[in-house]
């Protein structure tokens, strides 16, 4: 089958790629665009390690086809901050030691950003339910939730 030509935007950068019709957005990000910040934990939408945004909507990139990115705006962890200028969510994750192995961290950073854009003042319970699609096996979630709540407060203060 012929490859599909896709024009899209990734983290605000106009981007073009060729993919197989069956390639997932996750495959394309990791293997075509060499953006390995987005992780694969299950390939079935259960773990959230591959969380990205498509037109500001939080999705598992393993459940979206690369071809579906046509004309959309894709947001990944690489677009959120870098070592010189971290996003406040990233700073709070570091400050609260909200990561151990770190494999779920990119997905959680992306999901937390989506949460706080949708709901700047989540209760602890709302945060726990919003992030229920992002599995973490190391931390028991305690420090993650504290980081998220602290980031929310800090972002409200800055707004």
């Amino acid at each position: 089958m012929a490859k599909v030509h896709v024009s899209t935007s990734v983290n605000g950068e106009p981007t073009e790629f060729l993919c197989e019709p069956h390639d997932t957005l996750l495959d394309v990000l990791r293997n075509e665009l060499n953006m390995t910040g987005t992780k694969e934990g299950c390939g079935s939408g259960d773990c959230g390690a591959c969380s990205v945004t498509v037109n500001d909507r939080l999705v598992c990139s393993c459940l979206v086809l690369g071809a579906e990115a046509e004309g959309k705006e894709i947001g990944t962890v690489e677009g959120i901050g870098n070592n010189d200028s971290l996003h406040v969510i990233q700073e709070k994750f570091l400050e609260h030691a909200a990561l151990q192995c770190g494999i779920c961290t990119p997905g959680l950073i992306v999901s937390t950003k989506a949460l706080l854009e949708e709901n700047p003042s989540p209760t602890e319970e709302e945060a726990r339910y919003y992030l229920a699609g992002n599995l973490c096996r190391c931390t028991g979630y305690d420090k993650i939730i504290r980081a998220v709540m602290d980031a929310a407060e800090s972002m409200r203060g800055a707004a």
Binding site: N34, G81, N83, L86, L99, I103
Partner: peptide
């Protein structure tokens, strides 16, 4: 203190088992 490997992990730069080509 902030862990030394933390920056790479919150920005997606850290390279895991499947990340090398």
């Amino acid at each position: 203190r902030v862990r030394p490997d933390g920056y790479d992990k919150v920005t997606g730069r850290a390279n895991y088992g499947a990340d090398l080509t």
